[in-house]
Computed example of a mutant assay.
Amino acid sequence: MATETGPGPRVDAPTDDVPGVALVVAFVALQVVAFVAAYTTGRPTWYAYFIVGSTAVTAYFLDGTSFTVATATLGSVLVVALGLPLFMFVARQTPSLVVEKALDPDVHRVLYLGVYGPLLAALLSLAFGIPLAHLLAEGFSGQPLVESLVDLPLVVPHSVAGILILFGFGKGGAFPNVSVLGSMIGMVLAMAFVAAPYAVNATREAFEAIDNRLEYASRIHGANRWETFRRVTGPLAARGMITGGVLAWARAVSEFGAVAVVAYSVKFFYPFAGEKVTAQHAPVFVYNTYLQGGLEESGAVAFLLLAVSALIFLIVRYLTDDDAGGGMP
């Protein structure tokens, strides 16, 4: 039954999601038809106007309040800025060129390195970021300084991040016997430098969201801090850890500047060839392809990288989403 909590009635949320899903499907289908029509007639600007207008009309019929219509309309402007370039990018691909690049062994190595290298960086960020995130969640003296250091890579220009890695770990740095310049180690370090804040901050938020009384109850029942973390704190924060790892991986996948400075080309073991090969990180390879082959060839490689990254991202989100039926216990 609907209840009233103020000047206007409050309508209870529907218990059946089927109408909502049908509405979303219909809205998306309408957007696809509108985009195809605008693109084939050479008027993509019309589609930008259509997104804003259709969003405003939909918000009016669903809610009817001026506030919702205004927020939905203004928000749709950002959706245009984010979505329209992606739609145009996909629509302007040449299928034969995409297939040609998909069959290119050089592109295979680049795609493998573009997934494998960021994965190592994400795991490295989590391995040392989870303990740090736990400390930050609990609080300690000098915490603002540590927080500033953790968040510093978020504001450092990407090329400067690469320079910092070379100064810190390259020749004359902290580990003179470790080869950083042009090596897989250097590439992973560069990626971890820019990706670690995402892993730490997401994990920290997960720790901070845990009720302290649960840890207290565990300690009262005789568990030490290691057992409490393994049985209580860790499992409860697992989703935040995975989110942080996915964000760190995604950030490392997209890194260009730091990797270009530290490890423009790297040699690594390629399991599909059974030997060491030399390749470039995917964003670097896409940039070189753009310089040498133009927008169309680089776009085909970028399309493949985007497809692989999006597929992995969606699989991880599905496996960790309770609503999708594949969530964590």
Rank of each mutant, 00 (worst) to 15 (best):
S218I: 05
Q31E: 03
D322V: 11
D106K: 11
E138G: 13
K276H: 15
P144T: 10
G129E: 03
G294V: 09
V156S: 07
L124N: 01
E147Q: 14
G162M: 04
Y60G: 01
G168A: 06
S218C: 08
E4V: 14
D106Q: 14
Q292D: 09
L306Q: 01
P283I: 00
I51V: 14
D17P: 07
Y287A: 02
L304Q: 01
L319V: 13
Y49V: 14
H134V: 06
A196L: 15
F89W: 02
A199M: 08
G64L: 03
F285K: 07
A13K: 13
A72G: 07
A273W: 05
G75V: 09
F303W: 05
T228H: 10
L111R: 06
P19T: 06
F169L: 11
I210R: 03
I130T: 10
R317W: 09
A310W: 07
V284I: 12
G42F: 12
Y198V: 03
I220S: 12
L120W: 15
D322L: 06
L120T: 03
L214C: 12
N224S: 00
D151V: 04
Y216K: 07
I242A: 04
L78S: 12
L136H: 07
G83F: 05
G53P: 08
L82H: 07
S76P: 10
R230I: 09
Y270I: 00
L145R: 07
G172E: 08
A302I: 05
T68L: 01
P329K: 12
F140S: 14
V77G: 13
A161L: 10
A174Y: 14
P176K: 13
A195L: 04
R43C: 04
V284T: 04
Y47G: 05
I210K: 01
A133C: 06
L124D: 03
V246Q: 11
L304W: 04
G168Y: 03
S76C: 08
V33H: 07
P131T: 10
L291V: 03
G182A: 06
I51M: 15
T5H: 13
S265F: 09
A37I: 12
E297Q: 13
T233K: 10
T71E: 03
M328Y: 11
A26Q: 13
R219T: 11
H108M: 02
W249Q: 03
F272Q: 01
R204N: 06
V90A: 15
R231F: 14
L154Q: 14
A300L: 08
F89N: 09
T320G: 09
G172F: 11
V200D: 02
V261L: 12
R109W: 01
S159G: 13
G64K: 02
Q292Y: 10
A273T: 00
L124I: 10
A13E: 15
G64Y: 00
G294I: 05
L78Q: 13
A161V: 11
Q280W: 09
V178Q: 14
A91N: 09
A59N: 00
V180L: 02
T45H: 13
A195K: 03
T289W: 00
I242L: 06
T41F: 12
V308T: 08
L23A: 15
